[in-house]
Design a protein around this nucleic acid. Structure first.
Length: 516
DNA sequence: CTGGGGAGGGGGCCC
DNA sequence: TGGGCCCCCTCCCCA
């Protein structure tokens, strides 16, 4: 915190967003405070306009949220929307998704949900369905190509620094990704007009606002960087295509994302070792066959049970290690003492005790640690904050904070380095861990959205569900790729404002290094 | 607050 | 392509 400045501290409540969503869902199920009635082929669904506007481009446009005017849909007025072009099951699934962040659908209904998601402008759902169906979004291709270029540039950096708090410069070699406001609805398309969600429908409740949205609204789809696009020809989604999802049959709550994320454009073809994106947390999972393993962290499925004590595990290799406790096997003996360990990494940590090596030094108080996680824990505590002094810029010798050992420790206690720390990952468990004020979950390997990319949310300090970000059409590339207006982020969100100057200098240096 | 052990999860390599 | 195995990182818990 700057001297003499009444710095603001953002206290994270990681559970808030999920609890909020859960509460809203309970209200929806109870019909409480529902100000929107959706009707699909005779089936009515009560819901909340604000929620639908949050997840759906279509409803955002319909309610005038984009233009900042609620029009006839102002607060306190109920309205109904007829969505006969959306199958009831698909609409139900989308509503469940909106309130639970989980899409539960049957493979056979995937295409209906895809159509509904495209009609309503729920991009992330459309993405997931499209991926399962083995279809490709050309707009996404371009975005991913740009992301790939940028990611390569970032990978060149040995210090992972998040620039999420600073307005990034677009990579010169990559086309800028823009988060544009949707343009005006496209002219009516005869093919879509006849099943436009809203055409010619009346409200059916007292006080309802009559919805007479342009017919073409129902036939649009949203894609980042493209505004609202004319609907693709129906043959663009050939019914002859087989479902190629990895979760075939029965209800699918998860969906594998395209291996092309970050990969080569062109026809959809899985490449070995190609990264896949988790449809739940949007995390990129590297390695063939690793996505199902990762998905079990979301589903809680633990198919591997210990025959001795009944403890269950998500992974076979973890069960194998666990079994060592029963067998007494400790395959990693210390050559310097009788100690034996279950894990190789434990042995590695242990051996550093013998050597006395403390390669992990706090750049602020210069205290050295044998283990990196201990250093991280130390830095998360407050003891070091009070001792912080300006870090020596760069230079040789111990304590310079640049290269304190075999592992290069992120030298600054700035938001960027904090964001890089695992405390700011997507994992709710990790996010629960105590730490300095954080802004939103972010991991340099994860597709997080910089705050400034969404100026209307820039004042918020809460983590925002990923599906909402994506549904807003914001490119979910790595931080620094979504190009938005100049950051309106106002008050300092962390007590690290005094380091901003250093950060800027360091960024300049890094840019110079890149140019070299 | 720190040291140490254990566990969860991701990535690489190989089959 | 998926799974096994291993290594590594990080977090949690306890002393």
């Amino acid at each position: 915190m700057s001297p003499g400045e009444d710095g603001l501290i953002g206290i994270p409540f990681p559970e808030h967003s999920s609890e909020l969503l859960s509460c809203l869902n309970a209200q929806r199920r109870a019909g409480l405070l529902c100000d929107l009635t959706l009707t699909s082929r005779g089936t009515r669904y009560l819901t909340h306009r604000s929620v639908m506007a949050a997840v759906s481009i279509y409803f955002r446009k319909l309610f005038g949220v984009e233009e900042g005017e609620a029009g006839d849909f102002g607060a306190g007025r109920r309205c109904s929307v007829q969505l006969d072009c959306v199958a009831p099951d698909a609409l139900d699934a989308l509503l469940e998704f909106a309130y639970t962040a989980t899409l539960t659908i049957r493979s056979s209904g995937m295409r209906e949900v895809l159509k509904a998601a495209q009609l309503l402008g729920i991009q992330c759902v459309a993405d997931a369905c499209r991926d399962i169906l083995g279809e490709r979004d050309e707009v996404e291709d371009r975005a991913e190509e740009a992301e790939k270029v940028s990611r390569r540039k970032k990978d060149r950096r040995h210090i992972s620094k998040s620039k999420s708090l600073h307005a990034p410069s677009p990579p010169p070699s990559s086309p800028p990704l823009e988060c544009r406001r949707p343009v005006a609805p496209v002219p009516p398309n005869p093919d879509y007009e006849e099943h436009s969600p809203l055409a010619g429908q009346n409200g059916d409740q007292p006080g309802d606002s009559r919805v007479a949205a342009p017919a073409a609204n129902g036939g649009v789809r949203w894609a980042p960087g493209e505004g609202l696009l004319a609907p693709p020809p129906e043959d663009g989604m050939s019914d002859e295509e087989e479902d190629r999802g990895e979760y075939r049959g029965g209800a699918a709550t998860v969906a594998p994302l395209p291996p092309e994320r970050g990969g080569a454009p062109g026809p959809r073809k899985r490449k070995s070792q190609m990264p896949q994106q988790c449809p739940v947390c949007q995390k990129i999972i590297h390695g063939a066959g690793k996505l199902p393993r990762h998905m079990r962290t979301h589903t809680g499925e633990k198919p591997f049970q210990c025959s001795a004590c009944g403890v269950r595990f998500t992974r076979n290799d973890k069960l194998k290690i666990h079994m060592r406790k029963h067998t007494g096997e400790r395959p990693y003996p210390c050559p310097d003492c009788p100690a034996r360990f279950l894990h190789s990494y434990d042995l590695k940590n242990h051996r550093s005790l013998h050597s006395g090596a403390r390669p992990f030094e706090c750049p602020l108080c210069h205290k050295a640690f044998a283990r990196e996680d201990h250093l991280q824990r130390h830095r998360k505590g407050h003891s070091c904050l009070e001792l912080r002094t300006r870090r020596p810029r760069r230079g040789p010798g111990p304590g310079d904070g640049a290269t304190p050992g075999p592992h290069r420790v992120s030298p600054l206690m700035d938001p960027a380095s904090l964001a890089h720390s695992s405390s700011f990952s997507h994992s709710p468990q990790q996010a629960n861990s105590s730490g300095p004020p954080l802004l939103y979950p972010h991991n340099s390997d994860s597709p997080s959205i910089p705050f400034h990319a969404l100026p209307h949310l820039a004042q918020s300090r809460l983590a925002y569900p990923g599906h909402l970000w994506r549904s807003m059409g914001v490119p979910t590339g790595t931080a620094g790729e979504a190009i938005g207006p100049p950051s309106p982020v106002g008050p300092p969100l962390t007590p690290a404002g005094w380091e901003e100057e250093e950060d800027e200098l360091e960024e300049e240096e890094e840019e110079e290094e890149e140019e070299e």
